[in-house]
Design a protein around this nucleic acid. Structure first.
Length: 221
DNA sequence: GACCAGGCACATC
DNA sequence: GATGTGCATGGT
């Protein structure tokens, strides 16, 4: 039942918007960095910050290990919260380098559960950032249950009262096949639909989910 | 000028 | 354990 509804939503979104080609990053390292930079931040600003890092040839674990936080902060300035994010990036790089010796390839054989636990232990990496890294950088079948997901499901009365991040995530992970490509596309499509139609002040007209039961008064979680 | 954006840590109650 | 606040830029 729930699987059918979730697949119906997926089909509608895909039929409307088509493939989203996420994550827009060329390497796993760039995706990881983008996941931190996009915290509470518009993606366009993240692109500017990443362009600065590229221009400085800094998309490299060894170089990011060396750089001082102040210089890193200046480069990522367009992404906002730059002092905080510079520290968070340094924490992430230190984990890669000190615990796993650098190359991201060495992470891929490890279990999803172990990687998630380690990521969550890094200061600055919360559930959503950890799951974005697992799904988009490491290609693990993990569902990213972000604010758009909560908002869209909430508006369509598909969430229990008080459902939190883990509840929403397991709703998808237990109802759908654990398929990296599906989770990749589904989350990207929810973000796309949320941006265009399901904002805090919703504009439902024309939304591919418009004729499903929904409640436009409902606040986002 | 207010609100929002692909969150998280920390303080306080 | 729930709720509030700082971080900080850039687009609407």
């Amino acid at each position: 039942m729930r699987s059918e509804i979730l697949m119906d939503i997926y089909e509608r979104l895909y039929a409307r918007f088509g493939p989203q080609h996420w994550w827009p990053g060329e390497t796993p390292l760039e995706i990881m960095i983008g996941a931190v930079l996009t915290q509470n931040t518009n993606w366009k600003n993240v692109e500017k910050a990443i362009a600065n890092l590229k221009a400085a040839s800094l998309l490299d674990i060894r170089k990011l290990e060396q750089i001082c936080p102040d210089r890193l902060a200046k480069l990522i300035q367009p992404a906002g919260s730059f002092n905080v994010k510079a520290r968070r990036l340094k924490n992430l790089i230190a984990w890669l380098s000190e615990k796993h010796g650098g190359p991201i390839e060495s992470l891929k054989p490890l279990s999803t559960a172990q990687l998630r636990e380690e990521l969550l232990s890094i200061r600055g990496i919360g559930p959503e950032t950890a799951d974005s890294i697992l799904l988009y950088a490491l290609e693990k079948p993990v569902f990213v249950a972000d604010a758009y997901t909560a908002r869209i499901l909430g508006r369509h009365r598909l969430l229990e009262e008080g459902a939190g991040y883990d509840d929403i995530q397991s709703l998808f992970e237990t109802s759908l096949p654990k398929d990296t490509a599906l989770f990749n596309e589904y989350h990207a499509l929810l973000v796309r639909c949320g941006k265009e139609y399901c904002k805090p002040k919703p504009a439902c007209a024309g939304c591919p989910l418009e004729d499903l039961p929904h409640d436009t008064q409902k606040e986002c979680l």
